[in-house]
C-alpha cells in the first residue's frame, strides 16, 4: 500500500479486493462490463471475474435493484452501480420499501447486504439528472446506511467495509473528485460509520462530506491567511452520524457551519443543526449555519457554479459566524 492513485481507481481496487475475498460478491449495473462503467470504476473486473459476477444488466434501475434483492436472498452480496444520481428514482421503491425493510419485516430472519453505488453531485458541466445530491432521501429511511467518500484512501477501504456490512449501504461517490489523486494507506481509518477530522482548528467547525471536503480544505487554507482556524470534519457517514466526534468539535470551537451541495431545505445540514443546538446549546457562540445548494432544481451547467457552494461561500459563512 501507500500507492498513489485516483479516487475512481481506489474504488476499483477496493471492489477487486472484496471480490477476491468473497466469491458471493457480484456487481450489477448498466455498462459496467466491457465498458467498465461510464466512469470506468469497474474497468477490467468483468475480464477478470467473468460475466456471472460483473453483470451488464438491462437498462432498468428498478429491475437492477429488484434482482439484487433476489440475489441477496439467495446468499449473494450484490454491489449495484447506479449510473448517475438522477437515475436512481425508478429504483427508489425497491430501496425504500424492500432493501431497507426486509430485515425488520422478517424479524431478522433475512438481511439485505446490498451496496448501492451512486456517483453524485455536480461540477462536471453535465446535462440535467447528472448532477444531483439526493442523499437526504436515503438518510431519511431507517434500515439503510448512507456514506460518502471524498478521497482515494477512503474510497478503497470504505467500499470494502460497505460490502462487508450485513446492512444495506448507499455509497455516494463524488463524481467530480473521481480523478483526484491521493495515497491509499495500509488500513482503513476507523469503522464504517465514523467521521474523521481532516484538519484540526480552533475557531469554527466545518462539517462536510463528499465533493465539499476538498472545497472546505481550500477554504481553511485561505482562512489561515486571515488568522482564522477552521476545523474540517469529513462526516464520511451520513447515516448514522458520528455524533460524538461532531459534538466534541463543536463544543471546542463553539461555531459550526455545515456545507453540502444538496439543497439546504431538510438536508443533512438541517438535521445536524437541530442535533447540535440540542446537544451543544451552551457551548455555541453563534447559530449553526448552512451553506448548500439553493432550493431549486439543479440548474443548467452554465450557471451551476452559482448554485454550488465554493470556497468564497464557505468563507462568507465563517465570517458571519465569527462576527456574530
Amino acid at each position: 500500500m501507500g500507492e498513489t492513485t485516483t479516487m475512481a481507481k481506489g474504488i476499483t481496487s477496493g471492489l477487486r479486493a472484496a471480490m477476491e475475498r468473497d466469491p458471493k460478491v457480484i456487481l450489477l449495473g448498466e455498462d459496467i462490463g466491457k465498458l467498465g462503467g461510464v466512469f470506468r470504476v469497474t474497468e477490467g473486473l468483468q475480464k477478470d471475474f467473468g460475466e456471472d459476477r460483473v453483470i451488464d444488466t438491462p437498462l432498468a434501475e428498478a429491475g437492477i435493484l429488484g434482482t439484487a434483492i433476489g440475489l441477496a436472498l439467495r446468499g449473494y452480496r450484490p454491489v449495484v452501480e447506479i449510473q448517475f444520481d438522477g437515475f436512481v428514482y425508478p429504483a427508489f421503491d425497491h430501496i425504500v420499501s424492500q432493501v431497507a425493510k426486509l430485515r425488520a419485516r422478517s424479524l431478522g430472519y433475512v438481511g439485505m447486504p446490498v451496496v448501492i453505488r451512486i456517483p453524485f453531485g455536480g461540477g462536471i458541466g453535465a446535462v440535467e439528472h447528472h448532477s444531483e445530491s439526493n442523499e437526504a432521501y436515503f438518510a431519511h429511511t431507517a434500515g439503510l446506511k448512507v456514506v460518502a467518500v471524498s478521497n482515494p484512501h477512503d474510497a478503497h477501504w470504505m467500499i470494502q467495509q460497505a460490502i462487508e456490512s450485513p446492512d444495506p449501504v448507499i455509497f455516494y461517490e463524488p463524481k467530480r473528485r473521481y480523478w483526484d489523486k491521493g495515497e491509499v494507506g495500509a488500513a482503513p481509518d476507523g469503522p464504517l460509520g465514523s467521521a474523521r477530522v481532516v484538519r484540526e482548528g480552533s475557531d469554527v467547525t466545518v462539517l462536510c462530506y463528499g465533493p465539499m471536503v476538498r472545497t472546505c480544505l481550500q477554504a481553511a487554507q485561505a482562512a489561515e491567511d486571515e488568522d482564522h482556524s477552521l476545523e474540517i470534519l469529513d462526516l464520511r457517514s451520513l447515516s448514522p452520524l458520528d455524533t460524538s466526534v461532531i459534538f466534541a468539535s463543536v463544543r471546542k470551537t463553539g461555531r459550526c457551519v455545515v456545507v453540502h451541495e444538496a439543497s439546504t431545505f431538510l438536508g443533512l445540514g438541517a438535521e445536524l443543526a437541530a442535533q447540535i443546538q440540542q446537544e451543544c446549546f451552551y457551548e455555541l457562540e453563534a447559530p449553526v449555519l448552512r451553506v448548500g445548494g439553493y432550493n431549486v432544481p439543479y440548474p443548467p451547467s452554465r450557471i451551476e457554479e452559482d448554485f454550488l457552494p465554493d470556497l468564497d461561500r464557505v468563507l462568507d459563512a465563517v465570517d458571519r459566524l465569527l462576527t456574530h
Binding site: G63, T67, D93
Partner: peptide, 25 residues
C-alpha cells in the same frame, strides 16, 4: 416461501434475482 409482498409486482423481480442466484450456484 418468501414473505408476503404488498407492493404490487415487486416480488417478480425478487424472484428473478433469486433465480439468477440459482443459476450462479
Amino acid at each position: 416461501f418468501h414473505l408476503y409482498t404488498i407492493i404490487i409486482g415487486a416480488q417478480t423481480l425478487h424472484a428473478t434475482g433469486y433465480a439468477m442466484g440459482v443459476q450462479r450456484d
